[in-house]
Computed example of a mutant assay.
Amino acid sequence: MKKIEAVIRPGKLEDIKETLSNFNIHGLTISQVMGCGLQKGRKEYYRGTEVTLNLLPKVKIEIITKDNHVEEIINLIMKEAKTGEVGDGKIFVYNVEDAVRIRTGERGESAI
């Protein structure tokens, strides 16, 4: 099993959710996060003073999936999230040792 974490622009969330749903990928966790990278933030003025905001709002999508679905999910997310501009986000893939469905006690891939 693998865990896919995608950190994306907030405006792309609905498109990605819809695309994943169309491919029968329904189990995901969404978090609102803040982050910085090459996008470097933006400057705003607060009471006449310039303030640099380098932490920008992002959305993190977490998906646990079978090993053979990883590339398909990555490609779906990339297709919907890519604008070609700095700040499109990142995708990370981790190994998952085990999963347990609390309701039934199922373990491993049957729990996801």
Rank of each mutant, 00 (worst) to 15 (best):
R103G: 03
K43G: 01
E106I: 09
L76T: 04
H26M: 10
V100W: 02
T52L: 11
V96S: 01
K43P: 00
V96C: 01
T83Q: 06
K60H: 00
V51I: 15
E18V: 06
F92V: 01
P10S: 12
M78T: 10
L38I: 10
K40E: 14
V100M: 05
S110W: 00
I73F: 14
Y46F: 14
G105T: 10
S21Y: 11
K43L: 04
E80R: 15
K66R: 14
M34H: 12
D15H: 03
T29K: 11
L76I: 09
G108I: 03
E72F: 02
S31R: 10
I16A: 05
D15G: 01
T104Y: 09
V93K: 02
N24V: 05
G89V: 06
M1W: 09
E14D: 13
E106R: 13
I4A: 06
Y94A: 04
N95E: 15
E85Q: 11
G48H: 06
V100K: 06
L38G: 14
N22K: 15
I74T: 02
V70L: 04
K66M: 07
I91Y: 08
L53R: 15
N75G: 00
Q39G: 02
K2Q: 10
V96Q: 01
G27K: 11
I8H: 04
P57S: 14
R101T: 04
G87V: 07
E97P: 03
R103M: 02
N22H: 14
K79A: 14
L28F: 15
I112C: 03
V86F: 03
I74Y: 07
I64K: 01
N22F: 13
E44P: 00
G87H: 12
D88Y: 13
R107C: 08
E18Y: 11
K3H: 02
G87Y: 12
T29Q: 10
K82C: 01
I25L: 08
E106W: 04
F23G: 00
T83Y: 07
H26N: 14
G48F: 09
K58T: 04
E62L: 07
I30V: 15
M1P: 09
E106D: 15
M78V: 12
N95A: 10
D67P: 02
E80Q: 15
V51M: 12
Q39N: 04
E5T: 08
T83K: 07
I73V: 12
A6K: 12
G84I: 07
A99M: 03
R47K: 15
E18P: 00
A6Q: 11
V86M: 08
K60C: 00
L76M: 13
I91V: 10
R107D: 08
S31Q: 08
Y94W: 11
I16V: 13
